[in-house]
Nucleic acid binder design. Sequence first.
DNA 1: CGTGTTTGACCTGCGC
DNA 2: GCGCAGGTCAAACACG
Length: 314
Amino acid sequence: MMIMDWGLQAVVIGSSTSCSDHFHGGNNNIDFSPNLDFQESDHQYLSFSHEVKKEFFSDELEELYKPFYHVDGGQNMLMGSSISLIPKEIIKEEKREEEQQVVAPTSTYVPKYKKRKNEQKRVVLQLKADDLSSDKWAWRKYGQKPIKGSPYPRSYYRCSSSKGCLARKQVEQSCTETGTFIVTYTAEHNHSQPTRRNSLAGTIKSKFPNSKNTINSHKKNIVKDEKNSSPHGSTSNNLGFSPETLMIDEFQEIEINQENDHEEIKNMFEGSDENECVSIQEMFDGDFFAGLEDIHDGFSSSFGCNNSTFPFSF
DNA sequence: CGTGTTTGACCTGCGC
DNA sequence: GCGCAGGTCAAACACG
């Protein structure tokens, strides 16, 4: 993605309807009801009538985002919702990565370690913690690393649905926007989307502060992070618990690295199996989130809360 | 037993 | 060449 020489970069994020409040300060005068249809993406584009366009969007950026735009009755949206800003430091980092982004060489050689991330096709999304939702892919966490310059660690996930699947996901909390997470998808799934998630054995419960193991392990993280993070840094909460491990997958930002990234996004939502395809509209009509109720119920029952608020603080 | 997280060690790419 | 930072591995352990 072309990075403009702005002080700020516009990021369009999509989420549930509550996100509209972030942008409009509660004045919901824009219809954010998701109505994205990739089938028509080539013919639809965003035409911001809003002031934001003037300030943060250039024609080039708009052009790049075209595949994800949808115009609904004169209202504009990208993946369905609000707009947030990323400060200069992050822009600089991303710019450096993007400048180095190259087309992966085709070779039959399979290295033990994957190519550096900036050599891979990536899709970066931004999500908010208070928008509880998820994609239907099953992810297994395989690593967590403190990131220099960020008080929050980055979690690494791989697809657990298929052993040979190279799909990866990185989740890190935004150091500039509390409650916002940066999710980076790398590689593609080589299988159809699972009809349901795998067993939750050893997952949700152990992550929460009530778990003895969690407390002990995160005490280690606190010490570790204090050593590795910048001086101004702090852990994600008072237990060093990183909420991104909850695997909240609300697609809120898209960074276009290659021309066919919209296809990848499409696949993420629809799965590679045509029989399991679901339109974005269908997802938000209700069926898509039906499978998430179990997760939500788990949270509610474990912490005695009936709303979607997580039992952690930011 | 299968699936998941945690976490220290290890590997690799990149900047100097 | 060296050191750093990011990404991955794999053993240990937890949970259903």
